[in-house]
Every structure is written in structure tokens, then in C-alpha cells.
Design a protein around this nucleic acid. Structure first.
Lengths: 118, 118
DNA sequence: GAAATAGGCAACCAGTGGGTTGCGTTCGGG
DNA sequence: CCCGAACGCAACCCACTGGTTGCCTATTTC
């Protein structure tokens, strides 16, 4: 499958794009921050203080779960959701890799300029 | 304005959400990777090899530019675009902060459990 | 057992977003 | 001077998304 594989870098890109997409919504990002601070929380609890309906919170949690950023399990009559930082760290490392490669490129460019210009 | 300020953490979230949103598309992420590898590139050059129209590339570049991730300037009859890694690093640090706070929380939790469980 | 609390499911709506096509404009090179 | 290359603008299309409302189920709790 996928006969025209684009490039090794683009490959890593395609896997973390959904993670970024999941983080690319303000409401969801707030949910993540809140889940990070105050441990596992129920949907009702997450809805309190927010400015959005419980259903919206549910939908957002589903999206985050789909991106592997969060995990929830039913506990009695409420469902508790907690952060799952692995994908988050992977995304962070991806950004870090880009920054690093950028710096390397800058370094090489500068070196080349000095070597040629002098 | 904004009488009900949510929290200091959520504030930082709202500023980097657009950056994540901009990175949350596979095509755009590929563009970023490509711009990172091979210096400033023209739109035509970015379109070559991609599987999308020049117009789509233009739109994506506009989005990335709106998020402060990329910058372009007209050079003769072509416009050259290059990466602008500051926002990228900011987003990375944001993710890093979340991960770090998560680890701290885990540590405190473990300590509390040990102190009480014994 | 009844009331209240927590949540799931489905339908619906408006807005946005990725993508294309068509056409006009500007610049460079023979 | 003229042709082609590189790009901008605008319109259009369809699919997805964030959000709501209404209703139903399940689990506590009194």
C-alpha cells in the first residue's frame, strides 16, 4: 500500500499531524491543561467552569482520545478521564527535531558562506 | 474585557492553539518539514512533487504565515518562503511544560501514597 | 422505590476548511 | 517584443467540525 512513499521526514509528520490537530482547538487545549493539573476528572466536573455544554466536552474528549492524548474509563455512574502523555511527548520531540534540524542547517549555511566568502 | 479570565495556564493555551491548529494538517506539516530541510523555496518549487495544486500550497502558506510559522517575500517574479522557528520553539516549550507538570504531579502523587500507605 | 445525578445517542445547524478551476497580472529571457 | 513561467484573486464545492438541544439509560442516594 501507499506506493509513493514521500520521505522519511514526511512519514513522521503524518503520524503526529492528528495530535497537533487535536491540540489545535482552544477548548481542547484547556481540557488538556485542566486534566494535567487536576488528575482524573469526570465529564460533569470538566464541564463545570467551562463555557461549553457537557456534550461538547464529551465530543472533545472523544477527539483527544482518538489522538491518543487521553484515556477514560467508566467508574460507577461517572466516567473518569486522565491524560496520557506519551503522544504528547512524541509530538514535542517532533517539534524539537524540526528546530534542531533548522539550527543545523543554519550552521552549515554560515560555514559555507564563510568558507566561500573569504 | 474578558471578565472571567479562566486561569494562567489556559491563557498560555489560547495563544499556542492557533500554532497547533496550523500544524494539525498533514499537507502543512509536510510543507514545514520541506521548508526546514531545503532553505527558502518558491511556491512553484513547493508544489513540485507534492500532490496538491499550487493554489492549495499558497493557501497553506498563508495559514502558516498567519500562525507566524513561516515568512515569505516577493523576489523577482517568484516569492520565496522560509521557516520562522520562533513560534515553533514556543509551541515545543509549551508541550514540554505540560509534560513536565504531569511528571511533577505523578511524583507528588507517588510521594503522598507512600507517606500515607506506610 | 423515587428523585436526582452522570452520561450516552442522535439529529440538527452554521461556519470553516481543504481543495479545485478559471482567469488576470507581472516579471524574465530569448 | 513576445512568450512562457510564477503568482494573485475569486468563485465554487463538499466535507468536516464545533456546538446545541432533546431524549433516553444507568447508577446513586434519600
Amino acid at each position: 500500500m501507499s506506493p509513493a512513499r514521500p520521505s522519511p521526514a514526511a512519514e513522521g509528520a503524518l503520524v503526529s499531524a492528528p495530535v497537533f490537530a487535536a491540540l489545535g482547538d482552544a477548548t481542547r487545549l484547556r481540557l488538556v491543561a485542566r486534566l494535567c493539573r487536576d488528575g482524573p476528572l469526570s465529564i460533569a466536573r470538566l464541564t463545570q467552569g467551562g463555557e461549553v455544554t457537557r456534550q461538547a466536552v464529551t465530543k472533545h474528549l472523544r477527539v483527544l482520545s482518538g489522538a491518543g492524548l487521553v484515556r477514560g474509563q467508566r467508574r460507577g455512574r461517572e466516567s473518569l478521564w486522565e491524560l496520557q502523555p506519551r503522544r504528547l511527548e512524541a509530538a514535542q520531540r517532533h517539534l524539537e527535531a524540526i528546530s534542531r534540524r533548522w539550527d543545523e542547517r543554519l550552521g552549515r549555511l554560515k560555514a559555507a558562506l564563510e568558507a566561500e566568502g573569504r
